[in-house]
């Protein structure tokens, strides 16, 4: 399998707001790679460095040290984003546009030929179940519909890699289910997905591999089955143990309390 994402010894520092400290290390020595066709769960508590790592991959933040590539192209090169789709957490799209216009706008940025773009818009709006609302301005949309419009924009270029930052955050159970179904469908189509979420049950169901980062460093990485077998507990308990909430985790079989 080809490597889609490669992160090597990544370090990101920010100017610190704390007195007496010049910099804050958001990511420290992170190395990982994601293979083609995988759904890779990117886990960690708030402030762990997940979004910073994603921001590096998307070219929003320049790494202090180390490097990252997408399809072998450095993330600092804008062509690295040609085969990429990105769904950010809680975004309110241009409310004066209709989903059709939104997709047409983003499609133009990928230089998709007009006829192909129109066909693609029809397909995606059907996939995210927004075909009936295609002429309505986004300002009239519910949160779930906005999130599906967001997913639609991430798919406009038929990307080989999708970066989804908490795609089900803030959605009701029906909205979550719809988004999950779409992700499952994309997985079946062979797309590579980097997926960040706090919904560990969801991650356990969907992801092939996961990594857990905490305080900017990689703490665990492997398939969900590997982690569960190694720690002899479910993914949520693995997560709590790795980030230092050992007291919240029941003892391992055999009487050893962790």
């Amino acid at each position: 399998m080809a490597t889609v994402i490669n992160i090597s010894d990544l370090r990101v520092e920010y100017p610190s707001r704390e007195l007496g400290s010049k910099t804050k290390v958001a990511v420290d020595g992170l190395s990982l790679d994601v293979q083609q066709g995988q759904i890779f769960g990117f886990l960690g508590p708030n402030g762990a460095g997940k979004t910073t790592t994603m921001n590096v991959l998307l070219g929003f933040v320049e790494p202090t040290a180390g490097n990252a590539t997408i399809f072998g192209v450095s993330v600092t090169d804008k062509s690295a984003r040609q085969r990429l789709g990105y769904l950010p957490e809680l975004t309110y799209y241009y409310k004066f546009l209709t989903p059709e216009e939104l997709l047409r706008f983003y499609g133009k940025l990928f230089r998709i030929p007009k006829a192909v773009l129109e066909k693609r818009i029809d397909e995606i709006l059907a996939m995210v179940e927004l075909q009936d609302a295609r002429k309505r301005q986004i300002k009239t949309f519910s949160k779930g519909m906005q999130q599906r419009a967001g997913l639609a924009q991430a798919l406009i270029n038929d990307p080989d890699l999708l970066i989804l930052d908490e795609p089900t955050s803030g959605l009701d159970p029906i909205g979550r289910m719809k988004v999950r179904q779409i992700i499952q469908r994309l997985k079946n189509e062979g797309k590579t997905i980097l997926f960040s979420s706090h919904e560990l049950g969801e991650v356990e169901t969907i992801c092939d591999r996961v990594c857990i980062i905490h305080q900017g460093t990689l703490r665990e990485m492997g398939t969900v089955q590997d982690l569960v077998a190694r720690h002899q507990c479910n993914l949520e308990q693995v997560f709590l143990r790795v980030v230092g909430y050992e007291g919240a985790v029941p003892s391992r079989p055999g009487g050893v309390t962790v």
């Binding site: 929003f60 062509s79 984003r81 040609q82 990105y86 950010p88 309110y92 940025l109 967001g150 270029n157």
Partner: peptide, 14 residues
């Protein structure tokens, strides 16, 4: 503010 800058800059646009 609306965070649309992120999906926009995630496209091949400088």
């Amino acid at each position: 503010e609306s965070r649309t800058i992120f999906p926009l800059l995630a496209k091949p646009v400088s």
